[in-house]
Amino acid sequence: MALKGKNITIILCIITVFLYSLLKYGYNGRDLYTYRDYSESLDNYIDRYPDYESSAITAHKQGWPSFYKDWSTYWHVKEDQLQQDIERMDSFITKDLYTKGLPYTTTAKGRETVFAGVFKSLWEWDEPYLGNIAEAFLWFKEKNNLTDRQMALLVINYVQNIPYEIPERPFGLASPIEVLTRNYGDCDSKSLLAFVILSRLGYECVIYTSFFYKHAMLGINLPSTGYYKTWKMTNYYFVEMTTPGWDIGEISKQTQDLDLWDIINLQATY
């Protein structure tokens, strides 16, 4: 009996050490590379946009928890890019949307057309300037031997941890550049940011919108469990982006009627 008790104690000690190692060093048994160096990140940005001196570039440091570790990186942007982004969006909404009466449509297809137009324009405008943040996640993936799913979760956790606040903008929607620069956004603004980053990294994504729930979420094509909708034989799992802690396929009980959700597939040709 004493020998059996001693064996149990040894086994419990081994399990304790393993769990401590998992929490401290990560799932691969060693320290994770969780900090993206400022100078390396800036050099990468200048390589992409050589016409701009470093003095004309603003750095924004972002940190977030994921895989039981704290991660951080820098996002760089031209100082005048945010204002250009806001002016372009205001002009687009005023000239192209309100003049056509699209915000007043009541049909599902009409709403899809409205938001698809807005989301797609913001995606096309901002995507070239998000290359340095996407490159940071590729750097994290390479340094830490992350799987495609783990890198997707790292991006999702990153955006989920951006504070939730409704922008004082038309449709309550902020562009990806505005969300990153101001460090806040609401459901559709953060879903769009995650969509742009993940799309640049090669993932198949959609945006879910619900007029009934007055809410938006990300959809991603990754093997998962939980809630999803199918678009042309591809399953896109819901991802709640408003706050941290939501896993892929997990949504609140108050929003689980999937018939009330529209799929906006910006990666498709409308």
Rank of each mutant, 00 (worst) to 15 (best):
M1S: 15
A2T: 14
K6E: 15
T9K: 15
L12S: 14
I14N: 07
I14E: 07
I14D: 05
T16N: 13
L19A: 10
K24P: 00
K24D: 10
Y25H: 11
G26N: 07
N28H: 13
R30P: 00
D31I: 08
D31T: 11
L32F: 03
Y33T: 12
T34H: 04
R36G: 09
D37P: 03
S41K: 07
S41F: 08
L42Q: 06
N44F: 11
R48V: 07
Y49L: 00
D51M: 10
Y52D: 00
E53V: 01
S54C: 09
A56Q: 13
K61I: 06
Q62M: 14
P65A: 08
S66W: 13
F67G: 15
W71M: 12
S72G: 12
T73P: 03
T73N: 12
H76F: 15
V77S: 11
Q81N: 10
Q83L: 10
M89Q: 11
I93F: 04
T94R: 07
T94E: 11
T94N: 06
K95M: 11
D96Q: 09
L97H: 07
K100E: 08
K100T: 11
K100D: 05
G101Y: 02
Y104F: 10
T106P: 03
T106E: 08
T113G: 02
F115L: 14
F115S: 09
F115P: 04
K120H: 12
W123K: 07
D126Y: 02
E127A: 15
E135G: 12
E135W: 15
L138G: 14
K143N: 14
L146Q: 07
D148F: 09
R149N: 10
A152E: 12
L153V: 14
L153A: 14
Y158C: 13
Y164V: 04
P167G: 01
P167F: 02
E168A: 11
P170W: 01
P170Y: 06
A174K: 01
A174D: 05
E178V: 11
L180C: 00
G185L: 03
D186A: 06
D186Y: 03
C187W: 00
D188K: 05
S189G: 03
S189L: 01
K190M: 03
S191R: 02
L193T: 01
L193P: 05
V196I: 10
I197H: 00
S199F: 04
S199K: 14
V206P: 00
V206F: 01
Y208A: 05
S210N: 03
F211N: 07
F211C: 06
Y213C: 09
H215W: 05
A216S: 15
G219W: 02
I220C: 01
I220Y: 12
N221W: 06
T225H: 00
K229L: 15
T230E: 15
W231N: 14
K232L: 07
M233S: 15
T234G: 00
F238T: 03
F238G: 06
F238K: 01
T243I: 13
T243A: 12
K253P: 07
Q254L: 13
Q254H: 15
D257M: 02
D257Q: 09
D257R: 08
D257E: 09
L260F: 05
W261A: 00
L266K: 04
Q267V: 02
T269F: 01
Y270M: 12
